[in-house]
């Protein structure tokens, strides 16, 4: 029997396809993130609890507002539901860079970079899969709770629209967060950026109030805010039969329908991944 310590590696051990290697390393890296989640579930729990508290408390805050105040005469709780769902997915995706940043800081990333990965994109793929899954679980939890609170349920086609919209937003924001995780010097700086970006982007969107409530300058901000482009299709999915050709909001620069919302999110997600690619290539090459 040969000694187990004997060197064996050679230049041509490949008996699997490149894609199988990529799948193997991506699934191993994703598994690591899920093991961390299972053993340290506090962030997931907090990530579900916080939006539920928002939904219950914020929803109650305006429960006695005059009827007919909101577009389509919907209740504030139903109006808020879409905003909270999007905000939850957005916040989760904004944190996507944190595990990567910690891996950089603690040297674990070097362990990955020394290995003969088929593609170092597997590090990014694992983060995207992980964050997308978490965001969807959190969003579903909120949708179920909202439904129990009497704020409605979007139906099957509506649910598909909600999930597609959320995934597009999550991809885009995850790209930004991962880009920042490789550019910023440490986790303190990354957390600072997350803090600064989080609430202002929420307030400057249609999550908490419709565009018609806002002054023109803020209407411009909200009309250009990607969160609005995710919130409005979801709100529409809750409002009735799914029709993406219907105008979803009247921005100061013009009317925006459902197709345009989804197209913008798709362009944003693809554009941001193209934009951060040179950063990732430089850092991971």
């Amino acid at each position: 029997m040969t000694n187990p310590l004997e060197a064996k590696t050679s230049l041509a051990p490949i008996d699997k396809s490149d894609r199988a290697f990529l799948l193997q390393e991506t699934s191993a890296l994703t598994k690591r993130l899920f093991i961390q989640l299972v053993r340290r579930p506090s962030t997931l729990i907090a990530g579900v609890l916080q939006p539920l508290i928002w939904l219950v408390l914020f929803g109650a805050l305006f429960s006695n507002a005059p009827e007919g105040m909101l577009p389509g005469g919907m209740s504030y709780g139903r109006f808020l539901g879409a905003g909270v769902i999007v905000f939850t997915a957005f916040s989760g995706a904004l944190n996507a860079g944190l595990p990567v940043m910690f891996d950089r800081e603690f040297g674990f990333l070097n362990r990955l970079l020394v290995a003969p990965l088929q593609s170092r994109s597997s590090i990014v793929f694992a983060s995207v899969i992980y964050i997308s899954s978490i965001s969807l679980v959190q969003s579903l939890a909120i949708m179920v709770t909202a439904s129990l609170l009497g704020y409605g349920w979007p139906g099957i086609s509506g649910l598909v629209l909600v999930l597609v919209t959320l995934l597009l937003l999550v991809f885009a924001v995850t790209a930004i967060s991962l880009g920042l995780a490789f550019v910023l010097p440490g986790h303190i700086e990354l957390i600072a950026v997350i803090f600064v970006a989080n609430l202002p982007l929420l307030f400057a969107s249609t999550a908490l109030a419709p565009l018609s409530f806002m002054p023109t300058w803020m209407g411009w901000l909200a009309g250009l805010n990607p969160l609005t482009f995710a919130i409005e299709p979801i709100r529409a999915a809750y409002s009735g039969p799914l029709d993406l050709s219907v105008v979803l909001f009247h921005a100061p620069y013009g009317d925006v329908n459902g197709y345009e919302c989804l197209s913008l999110l798709m362009v944003l997600a693809l554009g941001l991944f193209v934009f951060i690619r040179p950063i990732l290539n430089r850092k991971l090459s």
Partner: peptide
């Protein structure tokens, strides 16, 4: 053991 399994997968 999990770390070694991860390492093994990274080396295919």
């Amino acid at each position: 053991r999990e770390l070694l399994q991860l390492q093994g997968n990274l080396y295919h």
